[in-house]
């Protein structure tokens, strides 16, 4: 659990982060979203003390982060940034092994961990362990960056616009990978982005920042239906907020018993996707299929529309 209490950062007379208090639950993903200059990166970097706060404090599982030297604290916290920041003169395996080496793990444990992580990130160790970063595609480099951040099994992972440099298709894949990894390891993730779609897709809770202040920190559906501030409403998108709300629920969650002659959709599809499918096919209801391909129920247009209202 990460508790941020009254955290403030001032550079001279400029206040970049202004008395921010947040609590990120264990095993959850918190996304900090805001325009550039909102202070979101500074807030993130104060968690691992790349930026030292002017006042306030951060508690990691109850312990003040200032109770140990900053570099030791950082070795316990994963850190991934935009443009991956891989070391160009080190191989993929050496890059991933960075923090375990700093921690003095035995070589065989490091080797096993590197192989495991490369496997998880769909990078065949036989092909990629000895490769240099410039030999990889952008998506692969980014995956190595995240693998490196997770190498020492940190309880907390900080990510600063990690997918910002990727094209939309690879970014979507990277986001799915992150969700799967987070479920697998139960890592507590704090991720900074300026992309509201990314925030809604990844965040269990989303903090909207503007001018150094957190305006609202809540579940995506609450941000959409009960924005605490006109800025939050603007950020979450007034014109398509109904569709964004639909995107937060899956067909499986909304399905009711019964069957339909309409198109068949997957239970993991969002209501937004189901609605789009119904519009496209001209049908008024759809059959929802489970993972095994058997019918789990049905959904009609009225039921979907009802969920697009606050």
């Amino acid at each position: 659990m990460i508790q941020i209490e009254n955290l403030t950062k001032q550079y001279g007379s400029t206040t970049v982060v202004d008395r921010v208090s947040l609590c990120v639950e264990r095993n959850s993903i918190a996304v900090i979203v805001g325009t550039s200059g909102s202070g979101k990166s500074t807030l993130l970097r104060m968690i691992n003390r790349l930026v030292e706060p002017t006042s306030g404090r951060v508690l990691l599982d109850g312990a003040d982060t200032r109770s140990e030297p900053a570099h030791l604290l950082r070795r316990r916290i994963g850190y991934a940034i935009q443009g991956h920041g891989l070391f160009p003169h080190r191989t993929v395996a050496e890059n991933v092994a960075t923090v375990p080496r700093l921690l003095g793990w035995p070589e065989d444990r490091i080797r096993a961990r590197v192989s495991e992580l490369l496997g998880i990130f769909q990078l065949d160790p036989a092909l990629y362990a000895g490769a240099f970063p410039h030999q990889l595609s952008g998506g692969q480099q980014q995956r190595v960056g995240v693998a490196r951040a997770l190498a020492a099994e940190p309880g907390v992972l900080l990510m600063d616009e990690p997918f910002g440099a990727l094209d939309p298709i690879i970014r979507a894949k990277a986001q799915e990978d992150l969700l799967a990894i987070q479920r697998r390891f139960g890592t507590t993730v704090v991720l900074v982005t300026h992309d509201m779609d990314e925030a809604f897709r990844l965040g269990h809770r989303v903090a909207v920042m503007s001018q150094g202040r957190v305006l609202q920190f809540d579940r995506p559906s609450v941000l959409l239906t009960q924005p605490a501030d006109p800025f939050v409403a603007r950020m979450t998108g007034i014109s398509d907020r109904a569709l964004r709300l639909l995107a937060l629920t899956t067909a499986g969650e909304a399905a009711v018993p019964g069957s339909s002659a309409g198109p068949r959709v997957s239970a993991s599809a969002s209501l937004r996707e189901v609605l789009s499918e119904l519009l496209w096919s001209g049908a008024t209801s759809a059959t929802v299929l489970g993972e095994d391909g058997s019918a789990r129920g049905q959904l009609d247009v009225a039921a979907i529309l009802a969920r697009g209202r606050p």
Partner: peptide, 22 residues
């Protein structure tokens, strides 16, 4: 690359390690 230096610091290298290793 500034990203490499930033990543090195963020992963817990001391200033001397960043200089010597990166």
């Amino acid at each position: 690359s500034q990203a490499a230096v930033e990543a090195a610091r963020g992963m817990g290298m001391t200033a001397r390690q960043v200089l010597a290793r990166v």
